[in-house]
Design a protein around this nucleic acid. Structure first.
Lengths: 229, 229
DNA sequence: ACAAATTTAGACAGTCTTGTCTAAATGGTC
DNA sequence: GACCATTTAGACAAGACTGTCTAAATTTGT
């Protein structure tokens, strides 16, 4: 099998596709039912494979669970970094740009399927697999938060914000922007786009009241004028 | 039994004590293991009673679970309202008073055993019992958030804050004050007192930068001067 | 000390789940 | 068409758990 014509993956194509669909289905079932309540027969059915195939691929309920978390962490991280790349480094309209960034972050990374699932698995089973979730912590928040903080530091350096501690500012930015979604998140729901925009708008406005550079209340216009000059 | 000398509870005293210890132990086990993974034998052992007694009191695993959530909601609500009663309505040092309030709220209602357990149960099993957690939502956030918002409105009315929407301000206050504890909460950990104070301090400072009444950056001193006058 | 209610220990049937095994079936590749 | 690995269906053993039942032990109130 290793000397086949296939270019990159040693097993044929359908193989990896099945692996993916198993991990996908498992993510859903683990989230709905919890680790203990998750039924491997059900995962197999939802993945459209036989139970034996699940065992062939992952060997074990626990190994399958670990694969699910690793998979979700990887995909979520990719999404977050892709979104961080759209951070407004040289904003035209600071408020609108930050709101846009916050909405993108929420919609693409936190409220989407992967984000919802990963969050729930961390909350639900985090204590049962300390090493696994320590790994997530390093790879996830440990890398994304500083990246966001660095962007805020750059905005401050560029004169757009008055920030003392970029790390604190980054955490507070996220706290503010999600302030109105907490209850929904808690119950595992998905906030509507309107809710996300509303929360982001209110959050960014407060953020800018705290950290925006404005000797006078007309600062927004002044910034716009600078940008257009 | 109903015509006994006991003043309020019809069953004897030891009875209710056992009921309590069962619900208490069940809360811990449900949180650690999830509903499906919770073992009634284990609950009985941790409660110091026999398994049969668990069934005598609650009849059913599901009924026991519901009793646990109701119990936690009630106790947490009581704690939150007791803490809201300590909100600084006529603050001397606004910053210090708000930090104190935030720390009390965290330590007495969110980071304590009941708060931790209730949060985890909501996150873990919220979707499985929609009516039960709708009830929690009404009794919990539905009553506590407006109560906090009302206190902020009063501060604004008293001239201590510049707030347009007290509900938004209340949510953002909580978001800011907990901004640095999110990761710890997610993994089910309990932040140290230092962490709580740190997060509250940073959060309140940012909150006051956004909503504090200060025509000039020397507002803090001005407020202090007013308070001492 | 007596009587009633409560608690306990243990056995028990029934159900569910995991993980293994085997033999047949499927699908792609030369 | 033949060969290869992969997948499938089903049976299976071993273990765990829930909820019930019974008879003995214990607690509580008088």
């Amino acid at each position: 099998m290793r000397s086949g014509v296939s270019p990159d993956t040693f097993p044929p194509r359908g193989h990896e596709a099945k692996r993916l669909s198993i991990v996908d289905a498992a993510a859903g079932v683990f989230c709905r039912e919890g680790f203990a309540g998750a039924n491997i027969d059900l995962i197999a059915v939802e993945a459209g494979v036989s139970r034996q195939t699940v065992y062939n691929h992952h060997g074990d309920k626990e190994k399958l669970f670990i694969a699910v978390v690793r998979d979700l962490t990887e995909r979520c991280n990719a999404g977050i970094f892709a979104t961080i790349a759209t951070f407004p480094d040289q904003p035209g309209d600071l408020e609108a740009d930050l709101i846009g960034f916050a909405v993108r972050l929420n919609q693409n990374c936190i409220c989407n399927r992967d984000g919802k699932f990963l969050r729930k698995l961390i909350q639900t089973e985090g204590e049962r697999y300390p090493e696994l979730f320590a790994e997530w912590r390093e790879q996830g928040p440990g890398r994304t938060w500083p990246a966001i903080a660095a962007r805020f530091a750059r905005l401050a350096y560029g004169g757009y914000l008055a920030i003392h501690d970029p790390d604190v500012a980054a955490r507070q930015f996220l706290g503010l922007v999600n302030a109105e979604l907490q209850t929904t998140f808690m119950l595992g729901g998905t906030p509507s786009e309107d809710d996300v925009v509303q929360s982001a708008t209110n959050g960014v406005r407060t953020f800018l009241r705290a950290f925006g550079k404005r000797p006078s209340p007309t600062s927004v216009k002044r910034h716009a004028a600078l940008a257009n000059a």
